[in-house]
Design a protein around this nucleic acid. Structure first.
Lengths: 248, 248
DNA sequence: GAAATAGTGTCTATCAGACATTATGGC
DNA sequence: GCCATAATGTCTGATAGACACTATTTC
C-alpha cells in the first residue's frame, strides 16, 4: 500500500527511503547446465559449503555482483565460466523465482538460466568445489536439492523437452562435428522415446541448418556415418512443425 | 570474483556482508496489460509522475514490497488490482530484465508479466493517475516509453502472438460469453491477418474447451451467432497444431 | 557372405487451407 | 425477396509416420 515507488509514478517518496535496506531482496542467478553423458541427460550440481542447507546438492549459482556484472545475463555468463569453464554455449533465460520463503535468510529472487553444452567442452571445478553430474530421471534428479531447486530443475527439463519439439537446440549438446544418428539419439534420450529415422532426417534436411563435412566417422560396426556441422550458429533454428506430436 | 555467496558455496563470507546495501539491486515488477478495444489490440500505459523520465509514458509497475508481497507473482497480482481493478485475469511471467544501465538510478532488475483481460472488466485509475490505453502498431506503441519499456513491450507482443498459435489464451481478452466470430476476430486482430472461418472453427471444436450457451446473440445485421463460454478456466489450452503456420 | 549400421524410397491416413453451399436472422 | 452474417460441407495438396528397401563398412 505505502510502498515506495521506482517505476511507479503517482506516489511520493524520497530516493533515500527507496534505497533503504529492507526494500531490496537478495538477487541471485542460478544455472541449469545440461549435457549428454553416457547416453543420459545430465545436469551439473554443486555441493553447498555454507550454512543454509550446508552440504546439500544445489544448482550452481550465486549472488549478483553489482560491481562487475553489467546485466543479469552477464552474471549468468560469468558463473557459467566459473563453474563449467565454458564461454559460449547455448544460454537462455528460464524464469525468475522470488518469494519470502524460498530461502531461510529472507526475501530472495533468483533468475534461472538453462545452458546446453557438449560434455567434452566442460572443464569442471574452477574453484575445487564439490561438483557432480547427476542424471535426469523423469523431470528431476535422484537426490534432494536445496531450496526450490528441484522445482527450477523440473521447469528447465520441461522447457528443454518442449523446445526440442520445434527447434534444433539439441545440436548444442553435441560436439562441433556430429552425425545424424548421434543427433537423433540425443533427441531420443531427452524425449525418452524412439523417433523414426526417415522422418527425423527429412525434418533436419528441410530445416537446412546442417552442412556435410566431406569426411566420415567410422563407429564400431556397420556403415560409417556422414559428419555434419551446424551451418549458422546464430540463425533461429525452428522446425517447420513439431517433432513427436502424437506421443503426448 | 570476490562476490559474496548466497546460493553459491565454496567462498567464505559473513551474512552481514551479504546483507550490505550495494549488494542488492532495486527490484521491480512491470505489467504489460493487453486488451481488445475498438477492434484493436491495446496496452495499458501510465504517465510517470516522478523524477527519472518524469511525465513519460511507461508500463505500470513498481517496487516489490518485501513486507506485503509474499512472492513476485503476488506483487504482480497486487499491482494488477491497483492499476486495472481486476483480480483474476490471465497473468503470465514474461521475462526478467536487469542491468546497470536500464535506469539512471543504478542497478535495477524488473520481472515483467503480461496480462490479458476483457476491456469491460477493467476499472482504471485506482489512484487518479494519468492512465491510457495505447493501440499496438507493429510490435510497439506510437509514443516513446521510459527506460527499456519499449523493448519489454515488444517481447510481450511477440510472446502473445506466438502463444496464440498454439494456445487458446485469446479467450481471456473477451468477456465471459462470446461468439466464435468474435473469437476469430480477436485472433485476426492480434495476428494481423485473416483466418479461414472453417479451419478456425474446426480447430476450436477439436480443442473442446468451449461450451454452447443455449441463448443467442443478435448482432446488427445477419444471422445471430451462438454464444459460448470457456468450459474450464484451469485446463491447459493448447491447440493440437499451430494456427496460421503458412503465413510467416 | 553375415552382421551391423547408415541412408533412401514409397505408401497412406490425416489434415489444414480453400472455397462452395446452406442456414437464419432483419428489413 | 434481398442482404448480411453464421455455420457447415467438400475437395485437395501437403506431409508425418510407418516401414520396406538399398548402401557401405567390418569381420
Amino acid at each position: 500500500m505505502n510502498e515506495t515507488a521506482l517505476c511507479q509514478p503517482g506516489e511520493a517518496e524520497t530516493q533515500q527511503r527507496a534505497a533503504a535496506l529492507p526494500e531490496r531482496p537478495f538477487f541471485t542467478v542460478d544455472l541449469v547446465i545440461f549435457t549428454i553423458r553416457a547416453e543420459r541427460l545430465e545436469v551439473l550440481l554443486v555441493k553447498r559449503a555454507e550454512r543454509p542447507r550446508k552440504s546439500w546438492w544445489a544448482l550452481p549459482g550465486g549472488l549478483l555482483d553489482l560491481r562487475c556484472d553489467a546485466s543479469i545475463e552477464a552474471c549468468a555468463v560469468r558463473k557459467l565460466v566459473e563453474k563449467a569453464g565454458v564461454y559460449a554455449p547455448y544460454l537462455e533465460q528460464l524464469k525468475t523465482y522470488g518469494s519470502r520463503d524460498r530461502d531461510p535468510r529472507g526475501w530472495t529472487a533468483t533468475t534461472a538460466y538453462f545452458a546446453l553444452m557438449a560434455s567434452e567442452r566442460v572443464q569442471l571445478g574452477g574453484n575445487q568445489e564439490a561438483v557432480r553430474w547427476a542424471p535426469i530421471r523423469g523431470d528431476g534428479v535422484d537426490c534432494d536439492l536445496a531450496f526450490d531447486h528441484a522445482h527450477i530443475l523440473a521447469d528447465a527439463v520441461e522447457r528443454l523437452r518442449s523446445k526440442l519439439e520445434y527447434t534444433h537446440i539439441a545440436v548444442h549438446l553435441l560436439p562441433e562435428e556430429f552425425t545424424l544418428p548421434e543427433l537423433q539419439r540425443t533427441y531420443e534420450i531427452i524425449l525418452q522415446q524412439p523417433l523414426d529415422k526417415s522422418s527425423f532426417r527429412r525434418r533436419v534436411a528441410q530445416a537446412d541448418l546442417l552442412e556435410e563435412i566431406p569426411g566420415k566417422l567410422r563407429d564400431g560396426p556397420g556403415r560409417p556415418a556422414q559428419l555434419y556441422r551446424f551451418r549458422d550458429y546464430d540463425r533461429r533454428t525452428f522446425f517447420p512443425r513439431s517433432i513427436s506430436r502424437h506421443a503426448r
